[in-house]
Amino acid sequence: MTKLHFSRKQLCIPYALFLLLFVVIPMLMILFYAFTGEGADGSLTFTFSNFAKFFTSTAKLSTLLMSFTIAIISTAICLLIAYPLAYVLARSNWKKKNVLLMIFIMPMWINFVLRITALRELLDLIGLLGTQNYLNTIIGMVYDFLPFMILPLYTTLEKLDKSYLEAAADLGGNKFTVFTRVTFPLSMPGVISGITMVFMPSMTNYVVSDTLSNFNITILGKLIDEYFTTYDNWHMGSMISIILLVIIFLTLLATGGFKEDKNNARGANLW
């Protein structure tokens, strides 16, 4: 029997196929739709009009602004809640801390639509539903995406080399200085990972905004959906998707600027 041998190239074939079928081709289709429009006789023509229309429409720009604001606030709150938690968890010597971590991650195992529906009832109970649409949406986003912030932060802080902290303390840094000059800069990759993982879905996850704001708040994801399902205009829908993609890419680029030293990125970059 000859042994089965796979070269590295061959091992990549399954993913390459996947990439081609489910990433490259759909992307090309979205690009195609975004830059075409239907003429009077129904024929497709190349056009920039979708792009122009997006940036001249008050409604679309408002939606963009609203999604952006909601995503930024949600991300900031997630960070504010998750960082201290991840810090305490990572620094604690408690042997069972994995159990504690699991408790924070566990909501992710329950179907997300179900969780949001339950949250809707809860918000109704405390009287927020129907009155505080923006607050509800942000609560929902934070509730939903918090684990995505905790995980990368915890992994970075956990793997942080304790000898750095000892060295900083030895050199006379008080606890605050050690945190601001050593711990926080070194956890930057985790922060960035967390931010991107929360920010992106918060811009588009319209199940949360629809359910908790009673459809009062429109975010970009919803707008894309409307263009595909009810407005019956795939071209504009694709264009909004492309614009969203560019915005997220720019955000990544901007946050990536903080990564001064590649050696600092110790594994925590989850994706």
Binding site: S57, T58, A59, K60, S62, T63, L65, M66, F68, T69, I72, I73, Y134, F215, T218, L223, E226, T230, Y231, D232, N233
Partner: peptide, 24 residues
Amino acid sequence: TAAINEMWEEVKGLPIPVWAYVVI
């Protein structure tokens, strides 16, 4: 239909609360 859809988009997307501008 396009004009009515646009109207609806504005109804759904507007108005933006003042605090959102402040945050931005």
